[in-house]
Design a protein around this nucleic acid. Structure first.
Lengths: 315, 315
DNA sequence: TAATATTATGGAAACGTTTCCATCAAGGAG
DNA sequence: CTCCTTGATGGAAACGTTTCCATAATATTA
């Protein structure tokens, strides 16, 4: 392992000069700089990030918290973050919290231990461990009080869901609630709810129970009582469609189903799923940029993204 | 930020004693140990991993390389790795290479910079940068010469694909090749090829072209020439099924399609996809365990996983 | 009783950087 | 000709650990 010291010996200057040459900080004569660069190349020098971090106590690592990377919505976000990060020389550590406050806490502690420069979190217990985090945090698709966040316009998304279902002829709608601890789910729920009420349409609500799986409350009887279904996300919609298919419910003739997220697979399920697209990749990108600015004390205001109805065959 | 030094002052012993007490290494009187632990708790001490890493030059971070986290096969693997890692106090940094040797090289260098303890890679240029990596590497679902690897029995997987298609009545089969730089794809291809030949069935091969997207060579004419399709993975099968649906080809009556991977969504596409399941999560778990053993000089031999036919409605 | 282990502790070096400070030469302003 | 700025360099401290070594007290063995 070649170090700065090896270079200093090789060139015949002090380590401080080498450091300055390598980082283009402070005064170094062009001549010496050239020699140092050449030596670094020749000796195959790779800077030791650990030492650098220890000294400056700021690493180039960013902690990313998601509920579960297995939900395809998150890999897309993560790619957005990662690609933007890589470009600026940062790297990310990912933690899956499984909505578990303990795991979340463990990860936040780990991020601290590693002197992470910041955290981007798509999951955050309301009064959770984030409260006493020393490092800057950007919330993703999640609004809590006065923290910095990047999100899509979910209220509008919910409105679009309800409007479209009504437009496509639904008369009795089941509004399926998502987890009520996430503002992104609460917003889309409220958006849909408001629109349903405003249009005086008949509807019921399937509350998000403690089981955390709405499909547990779905059965043949319930399904035949409605002709329109608003799902909190695409994943649930897939399962609902599957259930309907198996129970011989014709979609969209007898029942219309709308999802939320527009995962890549929504084109391929049967019938292809009408849904609300949110720009996951861009959300990730923006979150990273926001974090980087935020740590430098800059707070941009435009951090909201538009959502969009994607019409397919399930409505 | 409380450090070991703060604890040493607080208790009135030297830093070395504190270090020994905290790590239970070397001699420390029970009395002192108790006091140190109490002080650590009281002052909210969190060990600085960076300093520890600098000193020992081994961090608790493991680099993970995948082609693209957006393909749902990989998040599953990653969860396997991560869950196992977390349990043992390790964390992972993920890099998406997009099959790009440059990116791969960049990440490997980054892993070195961060003193990563090891690398788990599901993507590796044959004579790539791995060649001169100082840190231990475990290959995932990828066999290269004499390196340590963990993989599923893809040859058998390919055989199962072909066998099942024949059993389900296919008479003219199109075997779609995957990227020929990955042993996992080559093996399943060879498995299928061998079985097709052995059964004297009529078949053609759709080679993996430079475009890297077999769908580019699929058209209405080709589709109607065969009644059985062997896909290198589920993702491609989804798109093929979609294409058939749009072109009015009845599956499985007119054409049978089999995928590979058994992604979660294969249940939900239309028609639900018959495929080969490989135990992604377990593969990840095993890869981590293997890496941890390998770095300690232990090399286990049983690193192969069985695959399994999952029969659904596309055949 | 003397020699040797065993237990407990502290001092200091080391890991590889960055950065502050001191030194010194050369060039420009008065 | 002196004073001050600017450019170039090196020495050394600092970041927070771990670990080697030395010292000392106590316990064990011959």
């Amino acid at each position: 392992m070649t170090t700065i010291k090896d270079i200093s010996k090789h060139v015949g200057v002090s380590v401080s000069t080498v450091s300055r040459a390598l980082n283009s900080s402070g005064y170094v004569s062009p001549e010496v700089k050239r020699k140092v660069m050449a030596a670094a190349e020749e000796l195959g020098y790779i800077p030791n990030e650990t030492a650098r971090t220890l000294n400056t106590s700021i690493s180039k690592v960013i902690g990313v918290l998601v509920p579960d990377i297995t939900n395809p919505f998150f890999p897309k976000i993560i790619r957005g973050i990662e690609d933007a990060a890589l470009e600026k020389g940062y790297r990310i550590i990912i933690g899956n919290t499984d909505h578990d406050a303990e795991k979340e806490k463990k990860y936040v502690e780990m991020f601290h231990q590693n002197n992470c420069l910041g955290i981007i979190s798509a999951t955050w217990s309301i009064d959770g461990p984030g409260a006493n985090s020393r490092i800057p945090i950007v919330l993703l698709d999640r609004v809590v009080d006065d923290s910095i966040s990047v999100q899509a316009d979910h209220y509008k998304g919910g409105m679009l869901q309800a409007e479209h279902l009504i437009d496509s002829g639904a008369t009795k709608i089941l509004l399926i609630q998502g987890p009520d601890t996430y503002s992104s789910f609460v917003d889309r729920y409220n958006g849909a709810l408001g629109t349903l009420k405003h249009n005086n349409i008949e509807f019921s609500i399937l509350e998000y129970g403690p089981s955390a799986d709405p499909m547990g409350n779905i059965n043949d009887g319930i399904i035949r009582k409605y002709d329109g279904f608003i799902c909190p996300n695409d994943l649930l919609a897939y399962r609902l469609l599957n259930f309907m298919y198996e129970n011989g419910v014709e979609v969209p003739a007898e029942a219309r189903v709308i999802g939320y997220d527009d995962l890549e697979f929504s084109k391929y399920v049967y019938p292809s799923l009408t849904t609300i697209r949110q720009p996951a990749y861009e959300l990730g990108e923006k979150a990273l940029k926001t974090l980087l600015e935020y740590k430098d004390g800059i707070v941009t205001d435009k951090r909201n993204f538009d959502v969009q109805l994607i019409k397919r065959n399930s409505t």
